[in-house]
Amino acid sequence: MKCIVGLGNPGRKFKKTRHNIGFMVIDELVERHDWKLKTDKFHGKSVVEHIHGDKVVLLKPQTYMNLSGQSIRPLMDFYQIDPTDILVIYDDMDLPTGKIRLRQKGGHGGHNGVRSTIEHVGSKEFKRLRIGIGRPDTRMPVIDYVIGTFSKEQQRDATGSIQTAADACEAWLEKPFDQVMNEFNTQ
């Protein structure tokens, strides 16, 4: 079984913010396959389905970004999912809006949602899909930028990256992750 986790913050206030782009990818996958997310006992919204012959669980933690691992760990334990079978999707200010990057493993890079995931999963060996949100072009505080919405100019690129990220998630269910990285990291 594989697990795809989109990081974000719950609630209407954060719905279309840059920090919630991980949630947006999960929503795209759910919409493509006409699935339904349900609130679960793992402090999140999840669905377990089959796609391309593989069983997959999609998760949107409802613990707020900085506590994401508190949702991922119990789900992982319940379904007996190995860290190497988890793909975590999150925003990255070091990538321009519209770009995505996949990685096999790594550190948290200053991202508190990934930091919480590493802490609770007990490993850095989970896969990552980083989606670029760019950096503010003013002296705007980082927190205000990430919980702000995409500008009209950024919206087209952000929408494209959500589509591409969902394509990459689906590809991972059919192909080795190295192959998916080679395919999508060159776009």
Results as ranks from 00 to 15, higher is better:
123 S>E: 12
42 F>K: 13
45 K>S: 07
166 A>F: 03
83 P>T: 13
168 A>H: 03
137 D>P: 00
109 G>S: 05
158 A>P: 07
66 N>I: 14
14 F>R: 12
100 I>A: 01
88 V>S: 08
142 V>Q: 09
47 V>Q: 08
25 V>R: 06
55 K>T: 15
158 A>W: 00
164 T>H: 03
117 T>Q: 04
80 Q>L: 13
145 Y>F: 11
2 K>S: 14
5 V>N: 07
116 S>L: 06
166 A>P: 11
186 T>L: 02
163 Q>R: 15
22 G>S: 12
28 E>I: 02
6 G>P: 02
97 T>I: 07
85 D>P: 11
34 D>P: 05
165 A>F: 02
21 I>L: 04
27 D>W: 02
73 R>V: 14
3 C>S: 09
6 G>M: 05
29 L>W: 14
66 N>P: 11
116 S>M: 08
86 I>K: 13
113 G>H: 01
75 L>H: 12
172 W>E: 11
44 G>T: 14
156 R>D: 13
71 S>Q: 13
157 D>C: 02
159 T>Q: 13
153 E>P: 11
147 I>T: 14
166 A>L: 07
55 K>I: 15
49 E>H: 05
87 L>K: 08
14 F>W: 10
100 I>D: 09
1 M>S: 15
99 K>S: 03
97 T>H: 01
103 R>L: 08
107 G>C: 04
43 H>P: 02
105 K>M: 12
